[in-house]
Simulated scan of single mutants.
Amino acid sequence: EAVLKQAFENEQSDIQVEGEGTVWKILPDDNKGTRHQRFILKLSSGQTLLVAHNIDLADKIKGLKKGDKVAFYGEYEWSEQGGVIHWTHHDPSARHTDGWLKHDGRLYQ
């Protein structure tokens, strides 16, 4: 979480990060263009992160609810609200580091 805190404070982006948070809010899926499952995680530090998980390339986390724990490995992009985690999936073109989400013992990539 120290890396995420520093990235947020320094307004840095394009950083590969790993962590875990608690689902704070479930947002509607973004179905415009490439589809993304969206939810907000709250880290133990209090920082919030929007997770934008590409559900055209990876399975959607079914049954996700507020209070669930989700681990992540993906790319951090700075935002005023805390940041966005994306690239939480396998890159079929092998040009980007593969990411993942883990929920309830299952890996989504």
Rank of each mutant, 00 (worst) to 15 (best):
S13E: 00
Y73N: 13
A52H: 10
I26A: 01
S44M: 08
I40H: 09
I15W: 01
S13Y: 03
W24D: 11
P28K: 12
L50P: 09
K42T: 13
D59S: 07
Y108K: 03
Q16V: 04
E77V: 13
H96L: 15
H96S: 13
V3D: 02
S44R: 10
T48C: 08
D104W: 00
L41T: 04
L43C: 07
R38S: 06
E9A: 13
R35T: 11
E18A: 14
V23I: 12
H36C: 01
D29L: 10
V84I: 15
Q109P: 02
Q47G: 05
G99T: 01
E9T: 12
E80S: 12
G63W: 10
E20G: 09
E9V: 13
R95G: 11
L101H: 04
E20H: 04
K42N: 09
D68N: 14
P28I: 06
K60P: 13
K32Q: 15
V17A: 03
K60G: 06
E75I: 09
G19C: 09
I55P: 12
T88A: 12
L64D: 00
H36E: 00
L41Q: 03
D68I: 11
W100L: 14
Q47R: 14
F72V: 09
Q12P: 02
E20V: 13
A58F: 02
G33E: 06
L101K: 04
S44C: 03
S79M: 09
Q81V: 06
G33I: 11
K62T: 12
E20Q: 13
D59M: 07
H53M: 06
H53A: 01
E77W: 15
Q16W: 07
L27I: 08
Y73M: 13
A2H: 14
T34A: 03
L107G: 01
I85R: 01
H90N: 12
L27C: 06
S93Y: 15
T97R: 07
D91I: 13
A52S: 15
I85Y: 06
R106S: 02
D56L: 03
Q6S: 14
D29C: 09
W78N: 10
T97W: 01
Y73E: 14
A58V: 06
D30N: 15
V3S: 07
E18P: 04
G74V: 08
D14M: 01
E80V: 08
